[in-house]
Design a protein around this nucleic acid. Structure first.
Lengths: 155, 155
DNA sequence: CTGCGTGCAAATGGTTTGCACTACG
DNA sequence: CGTAGTGCAAACCATTTGCACGCAG
C-alpha cells in the first residue's frame, strides 16, 4: 500500500492525516505477519526516527477504532495487529506464536447456516471467528534468516 | 469440587499436593466465570490469607501445564482461567468482557468432517476453537448484585 | 487560528523472577 | 532428608497517561 492509498483510507474514515498515521498504517500492511507494536515501532523508526512509542500505540488504537486494523490476542501476552481486509479466521501455532489469516467463504456459509438453524439460548451472535490451532509445515528450501518477527520458525 | 477430588486430580497428574494448589484448583472451579488471576487470589485469601500472588501465578502455570486448567486471553489485556472439562467453544461479549463456555458435539462433528475433506495447504490442524462473539441476553428478574467478577453486566 | 495529534518521560498494572525458607513425599 | 513449592519483594515489560508543543485543517 502506498502513501496515497493510505491517505485516502484515513480520509474516508474522517481521520486527520499525519505522517505518523500514514507510516503506522502502511507498516502494518508491509509487515504481513500480524506484527506486535514493537515490530511496528522498530520498522517505522528506520524511516521516521523521531516517532514516539506512545504515539504508535495511540495511532494503533485510533486505526483499530476506525476499523482500519484489528487487534489480535494470542496465548502469549502481547497484542498483534492485522489489516482489516475481509472476514477471516486465524491459523495459529502455539509453539511459534505464528498467526496466518485463513479465508473460506464455504466454511463461513456452513457455520452461518448451522447457527441460523440452531440458536443459542441466551446469546445473540454478531460474528464467529475460528481459531485453528496446529502447526505450519515448512518448505525446506534454503535456510531461514533469523529476523525479529513473531511467527518465524522456532519449533 | 471438594478437596478430595482436587487432590485426586493433582495426584493423577503426578503433581505434589499442597494446600495452595488445592485451593487454586478448587477456586477456579468455584468461580465459574473464567476468573482472572486477581479474582482467584482475592477469593482464596479469604480462606488462606497467607498465599502469595507469585505463588498463585506459579500454581496456575503448573495446572495449565498439566492440562487441568486452560488459559484464555480476551480483547482486554488480562488472562483468564477455565477448568478443562471437555472440548468447548467460547461465547464472548466484547462490551462486558464476559465469557461462557459452549459445547456442541454436532457442531464439532460438522467442522471436523469439513476439514477432513478440505485440507489447508501448509498447515496441520490439531484442534479448532470457535470464538462466538455477541451479546448475552439477560433475564430481567430482580436486580443483579454487583460483584467483583469479570463478566457481570456492565452494558 | 484552534484544537487534535505528537513527543517525551513517568506511571501503571499484570505477570515474572530470585532467593531464602518450608514442607511434601 | 532432599528437593520441589512457597512467600516476599523487587524486577519486568507492554501499554497507558499527562502535559507542553507543533502542525493539520
Amino acid at each position: 500500500m502506498n502513501s496515497a492509498e493510505a491517505i485516502e483510507k484515513l480520509k474516508q474514515k474522517g481521520l486527520r492525516v499525519t505522517p505518523q498515521r500514514v507510516a503506522v498504517f502502511r507498516t502494518v500492511y508491509k509487515l504481513n505477519n500480524h506484527p506486535t507494536a514493537e515490530n511496528i515501532i522498530s520498522t517505522i523508526q528506520k524511516n521516521l526516527p523521531h516517532i514516539a512509542v506512545g504515539t504508535v500505540y495511540k495511532v494503533l488504537d485510533t486505526l483499530v477504532g476506525s476499523n482500519l486494523l484489528e487487534k489480535v490476542k494470542t496465548e502469549r501476552g502481547t497484542m498483534r495487529y492485522d489489516p482489516v481486509l475481509s472476514k477471516h479466521h486465524h491459523l495459529y501455532c502455539k509453539a511459534t506464536d505464528r498467526i496466518e489469516d485463513y479465508e473460506d467463504s464455504e466454511l463461513d456459509k456452513m457455520i452461518e447456516s448451522y447457527f441460523s438453524r440452531k440458536e443459542i439460548e441466551h446469546f445473540t451472535i454478531t460474528d464467529i471467528q475460528l481459531q485453528i490451532n496446529g502447526k505450519f509445515k515448512f518448505k525446506k528450501h534454503g535456510k531461514q534468516k533469523k529476523r525479529e518477527m513473531p511467527g518465524d520458525a522456532r519449533g
